[in-house]
């Protein structure tokens, strides 16, 4: 299978993630969609890495996963504390920054 297929699949997965972020209001699901996008990017990394014969792409995926783990931990902590204060995880109701 050539690179194009993998990249196209990656693009589609990413788009699904974007649509999810746009249409869902549940903060946790939005978060999951972000993970989807990160994974799509990882797929593109690995595919191109194989194509170029360069291991850097795979190492990068490793780093992305590490950062994603950290990000999930922080993000979920934020969601938990928001929930503690507001009893909701609906992002539409969290609009203190309204100008």
């Amino acid at each position: 299978m050539s690179l194009e297929w993998y990249l196209a699949l990656s693009a589609l997965l990413f788009t699904v993630g974007v649509i999810g972020v746009l249409i869902r209001r549940n903060a946790i699901i939005i978060f999951m969609c972000i993970e989807l996008m990160l994974n799509a990017a990882n797929l593109a990394f690995v595919a191109i890495s194989r194509e170029l014969g360069d291991p850097s792409g795979q190492v990068f995926v490793f780093f992305v996963m590490t950062v994603a783990a950290a990000e999930v931990a922080i993000g979920l902590a934020i969601i938990v504390s928001v929930f503690k204060h507001r009893e909701t995880v609906n992002v539409d109701e969290v609009d203190s920054l309204k100008g």
Binding site: V18, V91, D95, L97, K98, G99
Partner: peptide, 18 residues
């Protein structure tokens, strides 16, 4: 007039970004 764009709703920002 510009502050109307600042809705406080995260998703409206993401729409602009996309």
């Amino acid at each position: 007039s510009l502050r109307r764009f600042q809705t406080g709703v995260v998703q409206s920002y993401i729409v602009s970004m996309v």
